[in-house]
Design a protein around this nucleic acid. Structure first.
Lengths: 216, 216, 216, 216
DNA sequence: CATGAATGAGGATTCATTCAT
DNA sequence: CATGAATGAATCCTCATTCAT
């Protein structure tokens, strides 16, 4: 099921194949349980070539992390039109997030589950990636607060906590949406948006955030 | 630094020591990176004894999972008084959750981060535990909805999604609270409760959920 | 040809077997070319046991070095009676040196040839051992100079150089004696002693240092 | 830091660059620890070219050995004027030896330390080289003996032993001189000459061999 | 019960060497 | 000529697991 074994490919292509394979294996097995043998085989190359191009298991994992993190943050950023009001931005960001993670489950798995491995030396990479996402969300929340007339600056730590919570909720929902049949990315995003924007309290009163209609 | 080496302890005590050690090692290193050697040494027993009592690494991990999951769900359940209104119940549940995870960071780490390792055969164990928590939260949300006069039954799937989101947010915040100096369990719970109950939209209007005063 | 495969030996015995095997392999192949597999097989144990007891290739080599160096310096020291005049002391030291190296050619090979590997982290070990021997010889030479009536203190550096030269000559002769059939340790010692004490110039005049008769 | 990468050099030049690089790497790392990659990079050529010109690691090392051995023996031979008396010849030979090894430490390292690796198939090459040097020294010693009126022929084996000892002493002193700051090749040669010609016994009497003055 | 002794199996990494272009 | 692409074969090392005492 690996890539078709073709000989003499240019380096860039081979590297991409290797990263693809690595993301898949890392995503499914975890960092420690993944074996370079399996990755090389899935990539359709010999192990030494993997080492020649990507140096070590650590570096390979870091490269995966970086690639998937970049792809995810770009997807989210590109999904958001910054001229809209904060709730619309958030809605779009969540939709992009869910869509991307649904399309790249292994990449998402690498980012989410496997990156938490403490003690491994790429902790910095992981932290940086996560911080980038949290910073993005923090900005959105801050915008929301700034748009409000009262209480323009929430305590910084409060905002950070909210961002953490939102990201965690999104992560959790992404996993749920990906494993529960019949749940689409859009529905997951709507659920989360509803939760995030209006809160559970609104349920009591039958209110809630309503997703804008008719955008696919 | 392991347990003091004492001879001839009753089996139950020895087993507890082993589980304590295992939770600590598994929590800090992850399933694959944890070594039976290290666990045995930390427990202050010989390796064969670990195998005699707990069979295999897998079984040992499963036992850790089960113990920590039970402890966490019990803590949450016991923290909640079911006669109160839903928001108070949720608040108390969250407080109990954050307090417990703050006091048992390794156990929480085992449950949260390390258990996600796909492919390992205790996935079922983890799923069961998570489902129990989600079910608990789901019940709370359903109560909240039922307490409301209008729209008494939200679509079941919607509720499930909300519960997932809430649990995910709580998980994420717990990690954040455990690693960010100066953030207490109570603050984390308040942040999440605020977020969950009132939503971000409320921030715009300067409203929000206010934690009940004076309960420690 | 390895040790007889016996099971369940006490640790000390097994360690000795491993060191014996390691000295032999390291001595014949050199540090880099020696493989832990071959050493383990020759020792009649599995590789993990070698690692369990001796940690790493580096540590194993260091242990060999230390053991052989200690044995050699002890043999030389014990061969010398410090109450005799300097030439007799030197003669006895050389005899002991050649006898020991002839009896332990692999150990000698480890010390001499293989230890020179620059960049390896046991350089310190090797240097210490060599310095001990050089210091011993230096002392003998200094004694010889002190026994003389004139010029009681040679420049320190000069003595160091002489000691280096003598040790080098001995090393070289030991190798020669070990590989040239029909050359005994005693003959090698006599040759060197003659060379060292009387010098080549004395040969011109038919003079020379004469080994004391009748001591086997 | 390797050679400047220039295109289209004549084969002889390229080969020289490769040998230069190889001597440096082999001299510093040893045969086994040296990697063809590093050599090729230092030589500023691609690895296949190294193989095209020099066949294999073994052949490359043999070529290094041969080149450096030839250079050393030529330097010694050319440093000696065969019409002088034996002690002057020996003195000049030693001076040439120390000067050459001081100027070509890597080459000397290849010859001395690394060549001892038993089991490798260039043992013959090394032996031949060493024998050539020993033969040269042997001739000098024989001359010294022949110049003497009495005892015109020392036993052949005795002479061989002396030559071994002298070469060993020279090797050792060369290493010492190269690593001890403030010791020049001339001083090392004088020390050794003193040692070799007059012997340690002469020290007792305050006599010794005196290097001829004023020749640089 | 409890443990010191022991290992099969596998995993990361390196290296000399060769084609196809 | 010259090189980028590629690999088979080792090598060091670790780990879960089991006996014999």
């Amino acid at each position: 099921m690996g890539a078709v074994k073709t000989k003499r490919m240019p380096r860039a292509v081979r590297e991409r194949q290797m990263l693809d394979a690595a993301v898949r294996i890392f995503g499914r097995r975890g960092y420690r349980a993944a074996s370079m043998d399996e990755i090389a085989e899935l990539a359709g190359v010999s192990k030494p070539l993997v080492y020649l191009y990507l140096n070590s298991k650590e570096d390979l994992f870091t490269a995966c992390l970086r690639r998937e993190a970049t792809a995810l943050t770009r997807a989210v950023r590109e999904g958001v039109r910054p001229d809209l009001p904060a709730d619309r931005q958030l809605w779009e960001g969540l939709r992009a997030f869910f869509a991307h993670t649904a399309e790249h489950p292994d990449g998402w798995s690498v980012l989410r589950s496997q990156a938490r491995t403490h003690g491994e030396p790429f902790a910095a990479e992981v932290a940086a990636m996560r911080e980038e996402i949290v910073a993005f969300v923090t900005r959105l929340i801050a915008v929301a607060a700034r748009e409000a007339h009262r209480d323009p600056d929430l305590p910084e730590r409060e905002v950070a906590g909210l961002a953490e919570a939102l990201v965690g909720a999104a992560e959790s929902l992404a996993a749920w949406a990906n494993t529960t049949p019949g749940v689409t990315a859009r529905q997951a995003a709507a659920t989360l948006m509803n939760f995030a924007w209006s809160g559970l309290g609104a349920l009591r009163e039958g209110r809630g955030w309503v997703p804008p209609a008719g955008e696919g």
